[in-house]
Simulated scan of single mutants.
Amino acid sequence: MRQNKYDEAAFFDSYSRMSRSVEGLNAAGEWHELQTLLPDLKQKHVLDLGCGFGWHCRYAREQQAKSVIGVDLSENMLRRARELTDDSQIEYQQMAIEDIHFEQNRFDVVISSLALHYVEHIDEVFAKIHHCLVKGGTLVLSVEHPIFTARAEQDWHYGPDGEILHWPVDHYHNEGQRTANFLNQDVVKYHRTLATYINELVRAGFIIQQVAESKPSPEMMEQVPGMSDENRRPMFLMIAAMKA
């Protein structure tokens, strides 16, 4: 069974109230960096894996992508994506990322934002992405940073008065399943090291083009209380890779 928390009513309701769910990409703390990793999308065929509400799908069309397919396992996610989308060149398909079987050379660009840390066998997914990309095509992904996923607690270490002391990292090289608390519910994620992400991409036939570790934009630093603590450790890892 593929994990599908977003079709649970209470979980989806909590997720829908998050600022990034309401305001879209401009409320996503990593978007100002992820956006710079994307290639020119004009006249490109784009695949979005774990598309959620379809924010990246619609962005691709705003950048004049020729066609976009968004894939997500959640019926709730896709229902909201379709409600927000009025574009015949965007198609949404319900399936798990692990189950994609697109034909060879179908897409110019594949995007996956904050979805692949829910996938157990990342090597199989990278191979499928490589298969459906054209030669020279680009994969741009973001995941929770390995520093963030190493401990299932995914939280700061606090002092006696509740002050933030540091971000603890432990069991870093012990890759595998973590049961983390997200939106007050248990969610299964998969921790893997930074080296594993990069090496599995290389083994799948990709050339690494750029790696970024998230940090707040100057605007968020000014506008969002407590955002300065996000500079103390990266929450997200972003990679751009090209099919050799």
Rank of each mutant, 00 (worst) to 15 (best):
H45C: 12
R232K: 14
M238K: 11
T193Q: 06
S67C: 13
V68P: 04
E200P: 08
D86Q: 12
T149P: 01
E91T: 13
M18F: 03
E30P: 03
I90H: 03
E8S: 10
F148V: 01
S74A: 08
D155V: 12
Y158D: 04
V202I: 14
D170V: 10
N199L: 08
Q63P: 07
Q35A: 13
L78Q: 01
Q154Y: 05
A241Q: 07
M77T: 02
E163V: 05
D186R: 00
Q223D: 03
V119M: 03
Q35I: 14
T149Q: 06
I147Q: 10
G226R: 09
Q104V: 00
N76G: 04
E8W: 00
E75H: 14
M235N: 14
L194A: 10
N184K: 15
H45I: 11
V224M: 01
D123S: 08
L194S: 04
A127T: 05
N26M: 12
D170E: 09
R233C: 07
R79K: 05
A9N: 13
E175C: 15
R151K: 14
I97V: 15
Y15R: 02
D155Y: 05
L84P: 09
R203L: 13
S67F: 01
Y158E: 03
V169D: 09
V46W: 07
N4T: 02
N231H: 11
A244S: 11
V187E: 03
S217L: 10
K135E: 12
I129M: 00
D99C: 12
Q209Y: 01
L183R: 08
R61I: 13
G226Q: 04
Y92A: 06
S21V: 07
A204I: 09
Q154E: 14
S217W: 02
E213Q: 13
L37V: 10
L133H: 08
Y172K: 08
R82F: 07
R192Q: 03
Q3D: 05
K243P: 02
V202H: 03
V110I: 09
L114F: 10
H157V: 13
A240M: 11
I100F: 08
T36I: 10
I164T: 10
L133W: 05
A150L: 04
V110Y: 06
P160S: 14
H121Q: 15
P234E: 04
C51W: 01
I239D: 02
A10H: 06
I100V: 13
H145K: 12
A212F: 07
D40Y: 09
R17V: 09
F12D: 12
V46P: 00
E83S: 12
N181H: 11
E213D: 10
G162A: 06
M95R: 01
M227C: 13
I147L: 15
F182L: 09
N26F: 10
H173L: 15
Y172E: 11
M242G: 06
S113Y: 06
L37S: 12
F12L: 02
S112N: 04
E33H: 10
E124D: 12
I147G: 01
M235T: 11
D155R: 08
F126I: 06
R58H: 08
G54L: 03
V71K: 00
S67N: 14
H131Y: 04
A115S: 12
D123P: 00
Q104F: 04
C132I: 12
V119C: 01
E124R: 11
E75V: 02
D99W: 04
D108Y: 03
Y197K: 00
G176C: 00
N76F: 00
E153A: 15
H171L: 07
L38W: 10
M238C: 13
M77A: 07
I69H: 02
V140W: 04
V125G: 06
